[in-house]
Amino acid sequence: AQVHVDGVTYDFDNPEEAEKFAREMAKRKGGTVEVKNDQWHVE
């Protein structure tokens, strides 16, 4: 699973880890999390 944050792509073998990371980053940035094509996007 991939997580996109500020133009940087992070690869995770485990989708749950990807989701956890995406939500944590969004919380830190005060942003939102979107899922597109099985990829997490932190805005």
Rank of each mutant, 00 (worst) to 15 (best):
G7W: 03
E17W: 04
D11H: 14
A18M: 01
P15V: 12
F12S: 00
A26K: 02
V42M: 04
V5Y: 11
D38R: 12
K20W: 11
Q2Y: 09
N14K: 07
E34M: 14
Q2E: 05
T32V: 11
V3L: 02
K27W: 10
Q2S: 12
T9K: 07
N14F: 06
E19A: 08
K29R: 13
F12Y: 01
F21P: 00
M25W: 08
R23H: 09
H4K: 08
K29W: 14
P15A: 13
N14S: 14
E24P: 00
V42P: 04
G30T: 04
D6E: 08
N37D: 12
K36D: 08
G7D: 04
K20Q: 11
K27V: 11
F12L: 05
D13S: 11
D13K: 10
D38C: 15
G31R: 06
V33W: 05
A18E: 00
A1Y: 15
G7Y: 03
V35Y: 15
K20D: 08
K29V: 15
H4N: 07
W40Q: 05
H4A: 05
F21T: 00
G30N: 10
V42N: 04
V42L: 04
V5M: 13
E19D: 07
A26Y: 02
Y10R: 01
K36T: 10
A1L: 14
K27T: 10
K29Y: 15
W40G: 03
K20I: 10
E17K: 05
K29A: 10
K20L: 10
H4I: 14
V35K: 14
E43L: 15
A18N: 00
H41A: 07
E43M: 15
F21H: 01
N14D: 13
A22E: 02
V3N: 01
A1Q: 11
D11Q: 14
V35A: 06
A22Q: 02
G7L: 02
G30Y: 07
V42Y: 05
N37Y: 09
H4Q: 08
V35I: 13
E24R: 08
E34A: 14
W40A: 04
Y10K: 01
V42S: 04
G7F: 03
E43K: 14
V33T: 05
T32N: 07
Q39T: 11
D11Y: 15
R23P: 00
V33S: 05
A26T: 02
D38Q: 12
M25Y: 08
D6Y: 10
E43Y: 15
M25R: 02
R23I: 09
A1D: 04
K20S: 10
F12I: 01
W40E: 04
A26I: 05
T32G: 06
E19M: 08
V8W: 11
V3I: 03
E24S: 07
A1I: 13
E43Q: 14
P15D: 10
Q39A: 12
V33R: 03
A26D: 01
V3H: 01
V5D: 02
E34F: 15
D13Q: 10
K27S: 11
E43I: 15
D6W: 08
A22T: 01
M25V: 09
G7I: 03
V3M: 02
E43D: 10
K27R: 12
H4R: 09
K27L: 12
Q39K: 10
K27G: 07
K20A: 13
E16N: 06
Q2G: 03
D13I: 10
H41S: 08
N37K: 08
E17H: 04
G31F: 12
D38H: 13
W40I: 08
E16F: 11
D11T: 14
